[in-house]
Design a protein around this nucleic acid. Sequence first.
DNA 1: CCAAGAACTGAAGCGTGGTTCACTTCTTCG
DNA 2: CGAAGAAGTGAACCACGCTTCAGTTCTTGG
Lengths: 212, 212
Amino acid sequence: MAYRPTERTEARRARTRERIVVAAHALIAHGGYREASVAAVARRAGVATGSVYRHFGSKAELFAEVFRRASQHEVDAVTAAAGGQGPVVDRLAAAVQVFARRALRGRRLAWALIAEPVDPAVEAERLVFRAAYRDAFAAALREGVGSGELPGQDCELTAAAIVGAIAEALVGPTSPTAARSGDEEALVAGLTAFCLRSVTGEEPRHVRLDAA
Amino acid sequence: MAYRPTERTEARRARTRERIVVAAHALIAHGGYREASVAAVARRAGVATGSVYRHFGSKAELFAEVFRRASQHEVDAVTAAAGGQGPVVDRLAAAVQVFARRALRGRRLAWALIAEPVDPAVEAERLVFRAAYRDAFAAALREGVGSGELPGQDCELTAAAIVGAIAEALVGPTSPTAARSGDEEALVAGLTAFCLRSVTGEEPRHVRLDAA
DNA sequence: CCAAGAACTGAAGCGTGGTTCACTTCTTCG
DNA sequence: CGAAGAAGTGAACCACGCTTCAGTTCTTGG
């Protein structure tokens, strides 16, 4: 025998792998899934297309890792904001704002993470990602309901609805013009107000309709 | 000259076209965009694949029409519910419930209409569709704010957020288990409560954070 | 019935983009 | 240095599904 992988070569290998992930991330953040073909990723990473398959079994596997990393980063920020020590309402407001500001800062990436069409393997990562967001909100909500700071409600449902509301308002196709114009702070403020009303508001009596 | 299209043949042509649209709709409602290949649509409609192109310039054109029809149907129902005569709060509740119940009844179709990846031409139809939903809610909200029934708020933003919240809770990947278990009425009730709180609730004072 | 022309057919064409693989280059160690 | 074997290369391959089109069938008016 003659050649055995050594620390040096493994480090180089790891660095190449990293370059591929970074390149894929950059391409997704710029032009979404569409722009991030395997060939383009390889070109940007400075390797041959075939080399991508030395590090990842498939395109989906590569993208799953990119999603996992990017989403972890985002979720950590929101979870931290929601999980502090102050009043629950303040923490929820902070979490909404962190979510919204970060999404607005990197809108293309946010869309890719939240809504852009991806193949099933990557979709599975997204599910984890969105569930983590939901859980961050749900945990704070449960705490608030438990301590009496918030009225009784289905915390999981409220949390999911909040995630959907933010996503729609920020990156959805019906995003109000404010999301595209410069007034991002107004949008964030409005969204915060919406979310706080939705968790603290009293449900008014209303007619229950049976018609569908 | 000899052959001129007559009423009879035009009627047949229209019927064939209709069968194609219906077939595409059925396939989408069953298995989404994926299952609705041109070949499958043609097979189900009882025509050759090539014949589809006698009626539609492209697959996207066909699907745009299918989306337009299906979405119009849904939006009409929501708009009617939101646009009645009673108190705004009741109408909003009714609109949410109509939206939710219909989506739950045909979940696969709802997903296709609301969230499933489609190509740009169809996406344009979806934009119209979601905007119409938003507008139905926004109109009622503006009325409520105008009459003093609801507290002041950015009605467009609230409406978009409500659409997002419903979509996420019903068909999104973070949809709570209730959406999959049998207890759909509880889900609808919870969602209604969320939406009403979000439009009627008082925004509590909270610390405005500057950190992103 | 026949000619003209429209509708229909379905197999072949084609573009796209992920994946493979025979070959080259590089690294290690006796 | 030279053999062994891993990493890297990129052109060719291939699957998939929309689209086309030459040939066929159907409908109409003379």
